[in-house]
């Protein structure tokens, strides 16, 4: 069992992308699904307990070692990454696609109240969303959905792992208005 866990850990370490339990099972023919699942769970736990520089995340249907957010500034120094900065418009559009997929551009625009063609194109280019097909209604408009890269980027296991929406805030329950620039009451 210790051996199996070590083999899986080695595979996870060497893998360039999240490794699913199914893929691990294809590679380690002698182990059954339950053994692999157990080994993965205990690896996740061990790395959590170890509290080291990285942890094992369950993400996009697989498992992947990721550095801890606390060490961000140091890793940044090493890699000089150029993260995709998502604007508020892009995040809103992405949220709509994520929660309402498959979704039409007109649905997105209905919710946001503004033209969203450019934002959708941007998200398509960044491969955070993809075209799922066309809706069989007049005009056959395109249907959009999120990608595996979306799950990977936002550290999500699957679409069910999306954060739950807050209850709708009404004014009385929402005390923070002070951070609006120049929002003085007249």
């Amino acid at each position: 069992m210790k051996d199996l866990k070590n083999i899986i850990e080695a595979l996870l370490f060497a893998s360039p992308s999240p490794l699913s339990a199914e893929r691990i099972r294809e590679l380690i023919v002698y182990a059954d699904a339950a053994e692999i699942k157990d080994a993965l769970q205990s690896l996740v736990r061990e790395h959590q307990e170890r509290d080291g520089g990285f942890a094992l995340h369950e993400v996009a249907g697989g498992f992947q070692f990721r550095t801890r957010p606390e060490h961000r500034q140091w890793v940044e120094k090493l890699l000089a990454p150029q993260p995709v900065r998502l604007s508020r418009a892009a995040l809103e559009t992405l949220a709509i696609v994520a929660y309402h997929q498959p979704v039409l551009r007109s649905d997105v625009e209905h919710i946001r109240g503004v033209n969203s063609g450019g934002t959708l194109r941007f998200l398509l280019e960044k491969k955070l969303i993809r075209i799922l097909g066309r809706k069989e209604i007049p005009g056959r408009p395109l249907l959009y959905g999120t990608t595996k890269k979306f799950l990977e980027t936002f550290d999500l296991k699957d679409l069910k792992d999306l954060p739950a929406p807050d209850e709708i805030q009404t004014g009385e329950e929402n005390p923070h208005t002070g951070d609006d620039p120049g929002a003085e009451k007249k």
């Binding site: 992947q64 070692f65 890699l79 993260p83």
Partner: peptide, 9 residues
């Protein structure tokens, strides 16, 4: 966010 807060291989 991957590539911003956390990093993978």
């Amino acid at each position: 966010i991957l590539g911003e807060h956390v990093f993978a291989r």
